[in-house]
Design a protein around this nucleic acid. Structure first.
Lengths: 189, 189
DNA sequence: GTTAGCATGTAAGGAGTTACATGATTTC
DNA sequence: GAAATCATGTAACTCCTTACATGCTAAC
């Protein structure tokens, strides 16, 4: 994971659909993309400035009278070209970091309950995530009847569904294994 | 994902089991940990130097006559204390970046076959990974009969198994959806 | 002899996070 | 009047990757 600044393409991809401010980009990204690629303001604003300088986006001040001043960005032809170029290049392999697995891997140093608690918290967290994804899925299925525009969004939602389910199934399996080892350790009274 | 340098704890965790050189650490980490947290030499050697300075590990030159010179590192009591402290702290949420999902998400800009090819490559890659994980699992199950020492390793392997299976099932589902859209687009001849 | 693997490191740079700073507006 | 939200940005810092540099040993 390096070399090509991915933030650039998330911004270009979103702007290809509609004109947005930096703030809007963050909201859109949080809503639709964050589950597989998070970005923060600290990346968005500097990247927008860089993109403008390179002529891949243009900036104008929003004419809305109410509310604070907004900078609206639009993608240029050059920007669209660069986005398309990126879309045709094979992606790098995915990049995952699971601190929980590290802490479990070295788990023999702490009481088993510590590891079990960890997995429980993980389960709770991802039960919530799965619920959200199922809501998404339902909403998308309803609108997809009208136009197939949301197909690619739907495919990423399906990914989340599979992953969160895998998380939960693993958590139960792992808890059961830990339970068994504990039972073996203590004699029946 | 920041603040606590995780490389530190991977190194301490491995050294807690046995004395190792930087090179050994890389090999062990590649073998057992890389599927959920990768580290490189560029992190290992500087971190070892820092840990030595802080008194969490000690360094000695290996006495083996043959082969190039090796620096062997051992964990200290302070190091073990720091490792245990870390193990008791709740982990941060997992950190995933899937470039493939980004390229699919913005996929309406390129021909559908482009997206399908992408998913195919993803499938091939992870079919291999799943094969490797199943081999691991078989080996571990054999040795776990003797001692339960490998339980935590086994639990991380189970995680990999679930995830890779989820990847493959999603890939098939996504390919089927793409196929259907293409079929709708063209009239039967 | 030459390639592959063992072994240790440094330097440069890019990516990403966190904290800080500022101020307007809207809602309760 | 206070709190939440809208909105833009900067600075410092850490993490991580990549490329480079070096040299020995074992196998083919």
């Amino acid at each position: 994971m390096a070399k090509e600044n991915t933030t650039v393409y998330i911004i270009l991809g979103l702007l290809n659909h509609e004109d947005l401010s930096g703030y809007d980009i963050k909201k859109r990204a949080d809503y639709m993309i964050a589950s597989f690629w998070e970005i923060g303001y600290g990346q968005i604003y500097p990247t927008l400035a860089k993109l403008e300088q390179e002529g891949l986006v243009t900036k104008r001040v929003s004419e809305e009278s109410k509310g604070p001043e907004r900078n609206l960005y639009s993608i240029t032809e050059a920007g669209r070209g660069e986005l398309t170029r990126w879309l045709k290049v094979p992606e790098q392999k995915e990049y995952t970091k699971y601190e929980i697995l590290l802490k479990l891997f070295f788990g023999s140093l702490v009481p088993v309950e510590e590891s079990a608690k960890r997995i429980d918290a993980f389960k709770t967290r991802h039960t919530e995530n799965l619920k959200m994804i199922e809501m998404f899925k339902g909403n998308l299925q309803r609108v997809m009847g009208e136009d197939q525009d949301h197909l690619f969004f739907y495919i990423t939602v399906l990914f989340g569904e599979r992953i969160y389910n895998a998380y939960l199934e693993w958590a139960d399996e792992a808890l059961k294994l830990l339970q068994e080892t504990q039972d073996e350790g203590q004699e029946p009274s």
